[in-house]
C-alpha cells in the first residue's frame, strides 16, 4: 500500500475514503498522481497541455462516482493543477473532489486548483468538494480553488463545497454559465477560526431561457477570522435565481456578505436573502434545558447549522 496513516487521515477527512473506492479514481499527493484508475465509462487521462487531469465521463453513464482528491503532506509544497471534467449527455454521476493539507513546518503549503466542469445536455452531476487542513507548523495552509462550470441545456448540476477546519487562507472563485432549462445549485458551508481568512466569489450567468440557479451559503466565523461572501447572479434571459447567505458570527470575527442581482431581462426573477447574527440565546437556553452544557449547546447548534 502506498498510503500511510497521514495520507489516509486526510483522504478520509476530505473524501470519506476509508478503503480505496472502486471505480474511477485519481489521488494526487504533493503534485504527483499516486494512484489512478479509470472505469469502462469514465476515463482519467493527463492533459498534455498543462499536466492536469481530464476526466471524461461517457454519455449515458449512470450512478457512477469519480474520486479525485488531492493531498499535500510535504511541508511548504506549492501545488497548482488544471483539471477538466466532462460529463457526457444524459449521464448521472457524482464527482468527489477535495483537498487536504498537512503542514508541520514554518513554510506555507498551498494548492491552487483550477477546474473546468462541463455538464452536457440532459446530464446530472453532483460535485462534492471538501477542504481540510491540519498540522502543527506555523506555515499557512492555503487553498485557492477556481471553478468554471458550464451547465448545458436541460442539465442539472449541484455543487456542494465545504471548508470545515484548518485552512488558513482561501480565495474561492466560482463562475457558472447556465443554458436553456439548465439548473444549478451551489451550496457552500464554511467554518473559520483563529485568524483565518476566507473569501468566496461566485458569479452565475443564467444565459438560457428557463434556467434556474440557487446559491446557498451557510457559514460560521469564530475567533478573529474574516469571511467575505460575494455572490452575483446575472439573469440574462427568462429565468429564476436565488442567493441566500446565512452566517453565524462569534467572538471577534468579521463577516461581509455581498449578494448582487443583475437582471438583464424583464422575465428574470432574482431574489436574495442575507442574514448575519450570533447564536440565538433562545436556542441555547432550549438545548441547555435538555441537559446540555452551554458549550455543548453551542457545538450542537453549529454542527446542525453547517450540516
Amino acid at each position: 500500500m502506498k498510503f500511510d496513516q497521514l495520507d489516509m487521515t486526510l483522504l478520509q477527512a476530505i473524501a470519506d475514503i476509508k478503503n480505496l473506492p472502486q471505480g474511477a479514481l485519481n489521488i494526487r499527493r504533493d503534485g504527483q498522481a499516486v494512484l489512478r484508475q479509470s472505469s469502462p465509462n469514465i476515463s482519467i487521462t493527463t492533459n498534455p497541455e498543462n499536466g492536469g487531469l481530464i476526466v471524461d465521463i461517457k454519455a449515458g453513464t449512470k450512478n457512477e462516482t469519480v474520486h479525485v482528491p488531492v493531498i499535500l503532506t510535504q511541508s511548504g509544497f506549492k501545488d497548482k493543477v488544471y483539471n477538466k471534467f466532462i460529463v457526457g449527455e444524459d449521464a448521472d454521476v457524482t464527482i468527489i473532489a477535495g483537498c487536504g493539507i498537512h503542514n508541520d513546518s514554518h513554510a506555507d503549503s498551498s494548492h491552487d486548483g483550477i477546474h473546468e466542469v462541463i455538464v452536457k445536455k440532459g446530464a446530472r452531476m453532483k460535485y462534492i468538494e471538501k477542504h481540510y487542513g491540519e498540522g502543527s507548523g506555523k506555515g499557512k495552509r492555503i487553498l485557492n480553488p477556481t471553478t468554471i462550470i458550464r451547465v448545458e441545456s436541460g442539465a442539472t448540476a449541484e455543487m456542494e463545497m465545504s471548508q470545515i477546519k484548518g485552512v488558513d487562507d482561501t480565495l474561492r472563485s466560482t463562475v457558472a454559465y447556465i443554458k436553456e432549462k439548465g439548473n444549478l445549485k451551489v451550496v457552500e458551508r464554511l467554518l473559520t477560526h483563529d485568524s483565518q481568512i476566507a473569501e468566496s466569489d461566485i458569479e452565475v450567468h443564467i444565459e438560457g431561457g428557463g434556467g434556474v440557479a440557487q446559491i446557498l451559503s451557510r457559514s460560521v466565523a469564530q475567533d478573529n477570522s474574516t469571511q467575505v461572501f460575494k455572490a452575483a447572479l446575472y439573469g440574462e434571459n427568462e429565468c429564476s435565481g436565488h442567493v441566500e447567505c446565512d452566517a453565524i458570527i462569534m467572538d471577534g470575527a468579521k463577516i461581509r456578505a455581498v449578494p448582487q442581482l443583475v437582471a438583464e431581462n424583464a422575465e428574470a426573477i432574482l431574489t436574495h436573502e442575507a442574514a448575519i447574527g450570533k447564536i440565538a440565546g433562545e436556542q441555547l437556553i432550549k438545548l441547555m434545558s435538555l441537559g446540555l452544557s452551554e458549550q455543548e449547546a453551542i457545538n450542537t447548534i453549529l454542527e446542525g447549522f453547517l450540516r
Partner: peptide
Amino acid sequence: NVSERARKGIAYAFQQPPRFKGLRVSDL
C-alpha cells in the same frame, strides 16, 4: 444554571419553542 437544573430533574416544554436551522426532530 439551566443545564444543572435540567440534570437535577427539571424539564420545561416551552410555550413558544425556538426553531433551529439544521437540527432535526430526531436530534432534539
